[in-house]
Design a protein around this nucleic acid. Structure first.
Lengths: 135, 135
DNA sequence: CTATATGCAAAGTATTTGCAACATT
DNA sequence: AATGTTGCAAATACTTTGCATATAG
């Protein structure tokens, strides 16, 4: 099932991983690229994309789509299924673990004869910080 | 607040609206464009995009992002807030109206000091039809 | 040393926009 | 007749890919 695909350890991948694990925010590939550059690390944009793809596949990071269609990534603390509360101003996010919604979603799906179900849920808003700065 | 923006009635817009209101499926702009062409209606792709944008803004249709970042649209029966149960094989979808999740989401957000909150929730799976055809 | 990863730039997608021709009101 | 709308093509924006070179193991 899991094919033997060699993954070489490079400082570029480490940099991306570190950056994500350092923060709570969702960042787009481009943001990450910029941040790395600012940190003095000259990493190619394509490499960042490739690293993120790989990490997403191995469930090291969560991916979500911003309203305008960009992919945003965030380190996730566990292989657990969970959702996020995301600030749409600064990207700060909190992981939300709950089974209430899980159960509800599963039962709704089953009630309609659906199988092999899953769901996506994100809550958006302005975090306390960003709420204050009314302008 | 709501500025007086005149909207002219054209057969192109009607065609898009009719197509969406005819079905239960989510379709991407490009799919809609193709379908219209097949129906003999030669509508420009840009026009389809513009029509969908407008309809989305006036809440005549729902928008969601497919995993690969494309926008998919579906007619929605009401101006009400609701979610969908979507078949990932055929695109068939069912509107789900509930306040359980609404309330839960709102309280979670509030508990974390977030304001101006909203959320996105879609349940995916295989509908009864597609479940049967095991291959 | 050898195969994989990087980096650049070119190629792909999906969507938006400028503008002249056109059609609704 | 006047202005919103269409359609095309060029322009954007994000992401992927090809290929020569650098590098981890």
């Amino acid at each position: 099932m899991t094919n033997t695909r060699p993954t070489r350890q490079t400082w570029q991948k480490a940099a991306v991983r570190d950056l994500l694990e350092g923060g709570e925010e969702f960042r787009t590939a481009q943001q990450i690229h910029d941040l790395l550059r600012d940190s003095g690390a000259k990493v190619g944009l394509a490499t960042v994309y490739r690293a993120l793809q790989a990490m997403a596949e191995s469930d090291e990071v969560d991916v979500l789509r911003t309203p305008d269609g960009e992919a945003a990534y965030r380190a996730c603390s566990s292989g657990q299924h969970h959702h996020h509360l995301v600030c749409r101003a600064c990207g700060y996010s909190i992981e939300i673990a709950t089974h209430i919604v899980e159960d509800w979603a599963a039962s709704v799906a089953k009630a309609h004869g659906f199988t092999d179900t899953g769901h996506e849920l994100e809550i958006f808003g302005l975090c306390q910080n960003c709420s204050g700065q009314s302008r």
